[in-house]
């Protein structure tokens, strides 16, 4: 364990809490992409199957359970909660996210640490997480005004994987750990946030509304 990784996991947890707070307090999921949330549920389920096969860990296990529970809760709210589901921007959330699932599955089939069910699914979840934010970013571009909580949510989500990159750099030098699959996927994932980060920081500096071109 190192500070980068701890900060990264806390940032990830914070992003999910921000989203839950937004949905619960405003009773609205305007500006949130249900497709991205669906993909996250898929990411967590396919990644945390090892909850049943590997020894539990005091640190990882609670996080895995919280990530699974919160991501499923968010999708439940957006699909079935009578008030919240009315506020979902169905017609703007148009990204064909199914086109993301198949390439990730094929890639996982060929590129994985070991050709077993758990490892292929784990690789699938790593690749899928890298692109899962795309529907959300596309939805933000079509949103006229992005509310602060949504902007903060996406920022934290991008920041957590950027912190993981620092964690991997640290572990490479300190613990001689090499992990090609999450490294490359993590780089792609963080790169996808690049323009969002630029506009988010610019709007924060000029103290103006966040607006994506």
């Amino acid at each position: 364990m190192n500070a980068f990784r701890l900060l990264a996991d806390l940032t990830h947890l914070l992003s999910i809490i921000i989203l839950l707070v937004k949905i619960r307090t405003t009773k609205s999921c305007a500006g949130i992409s249900l497709k991205t949330q669906d993909l996250y549920v898929l990411v967590f389920i396919s990644r945390y199957l090892d909850l049943f096969t590997r020894p539990l860990s005091l640190y990882n296990t609670p996080f895995k359970l919280v990530f699974l529970a919160t991501s499923i809760t968010i999708v439940y709210y957006m699909r079935y909660h009578k008030v919240v589901k009315q506020t979902y921007n169905k017609d703007s959330d148009t990204f064909k996210h199914y086109f993301l699932i198949l390439p990730c599955a094929v890639l996982a089939f060929f590129i994985n640490p070991k050709f077993t069910f758990i490892e292929v699914l784990w690789s699938f979840s790593i690749y899928l997480e890298a692109v899962a934010i795309l529907p959300q970013l596309v939805l933000l571009q079509s949103s006229s005004n992005i509310d602060n909580l949504t902007g903060n949510y996406v920022f934290m989500l991008g920041a957590y994987r950027a912190l993981y990159l620092l964690n991997w750099i640290y572990r490479f030098f300190a613990e001689d750990v090499v992990r090609w699959i999450p490294w490359i996927a993590g780089l792609v994932q963080t790169a996808l946030y690049a323009d969002f980060f630029y506009y988010y920081i610019k709007s924060w500096r000029n103290n103006e509304r966040l607006k994506l071109p």
Binding site: D9, D50, N60, P113, K114, E119
Partner: peptide, 10 residues
């Protein structure tokens, strides 16, 4: 490659 199998991260 060995390390990839040790999923000790979230």
């Amino acid at each position: 490659k060995e390390d990839d199998k040790k999923h000790d991260e979230l």
